[in-house]
Simulated scan of single mutants.
Amino acid sequence: MPPKKKTKKTTKKNPEKSDTDLEAKYRRSVLDIATLQDRIALQCESVIKVQSDRIDLRRHMRDMEQKLQHERQDHRDVNSDLSRQYKTMQTELTNKVKRLEKEVSQLNEELALCQEELRKEKREREQMEQEKDATIADLQHKLDNMETDYEKVLHDTLDSLTSQLSVAQKGWEDKSTTLHQNYKGLLSEFGLNALDI
């Protein structure tokens, strides 16, 4: 704090008192100067410390700005890399989707062809089964007719054979009767009785 200025009074005093006053003023001035020098020294130290702190803060701020710049660059690099990876994955996924859609389309076409072929095979099988059933029915009918015909032929043959056998039997009986008669006659000519023999 600067010393207060004293206004000079133009009153006359005694010389001894004025010397002591002067000495007191001088001592006070020396003390004030010493105090001011101490304050100035403290202020200088404070200014030096503030300047040093300011330099440190500026250096720290530069370091932080560089760090921030590096982090921003890293962030941009990461973003760029992630964007590139995303685009690559999106392209790959799009290609895969297109490929799978194409495969699905081909498989659907193949499925449609297979289903058409299956329907055709079923129709052919049903037609073959119908033809087979018709053939079996026709053969069964023919077999039944043949059986009936064979039965008829067999009955006719047996009837014919029976009638032929009857005719033959009758002929043999007639012949046998004739032969018996002839043998009887011959035996009686020789004097033999046919019932005794």
Rank of each mutant, 00 (worst) to 15 (best):
D133M: 13
M146A: 15
S176L: 15
T148C: 01
E147H: 05
N145K: 07
G185Y: 08
D174I: 09
K142P: 03
K170F: 01
A168H: 08
I136Y: 07
K184A: 09
H180W: 07
K170W: 00
N145A: 07
L154K: 13
L161I: 04
Q130C: 00
T157L: 13
D144N: 12
Q181M: 08
K175S: 15
M146Y: 10
D133V: 09
N145E: 11
E147P: 03
A137T: 04
D149H: 04
N145M: 03
L179G: 05
T177F: 09
Q164K: 14
T157C: 06
S166E: 15
K152S: 10
D156G: 05
D138A: 13
G171A: 12
K142F: 01
N182D: 15
Q181Y: 08
V167F: 07
T157N: 07
Q130A: 06
D133C: 07
L187I: 01
S160V: 00
L158T: 01
E173I: 11
W172C: 08
T148H: 11
Q164F: 10
Q130W: 03
K152V: 08
E151F: 04
N145L: 08
I136F: 10
S176W: 06
D144W: 00
E131D: 09
N145V: 06
L161M: 05
A134Y: 06
T157D: 02
S188P: 01
L161F: 04
M146R: 12
Y150S: 04
G171T: 14
S176E: 15
S188D: 12
T178W: 01
K142A: 10
Y183G: 02
T135R: 14
L143H: 11
Y150T: 03
E147F: 03
E189N: 04
Q169H: 03
V167M: 12
L139T: 07
G185Q: 12
L143D: 08
D159L: 08
E189H: 02
L161Q: 05
L154N: 06
E151V: 01
D138R: 12
K142H: 10
K132T: 10
S163L: 11
K175D: 13
S166M: 14
Q169T: 09
E147Q: 06
L179W: 04
W172Q: 15
H141V: 11
E189T: 01
G171Q: 13
G185K: 12
E147Y: 06
S166W: 02
L158G: 00
L179S: 02
D133Q: 14
N145C: 02
S160M: 03
S176I: 15
Q164T: 11
Q169V: 06
S160D: 02
D174A: 07
L139N: 03
L165R: 14
Q130E: 09
D138S: 14
L143W: 07
T148A: 13
Q140G: 05
W172D: 13
D156P: 01
S163M: 09
E173K: 10
K152P: 00
E151H: 08
K184H: 07
L179C: 05
Y183C: 03
T148N: 13
T178Q: 12
S160T: 02
Y150Q: 00
Q164I: 08
S176P: 02
H180Y: 12
K152N: 11
Q140P: 00
S176C: 10
E189K: 09
A168K: 12
K132D: 00
K170T: 11
T148Q: 14
L165Q: 09
L165Y: 06
K152C: 05
D149I: 00
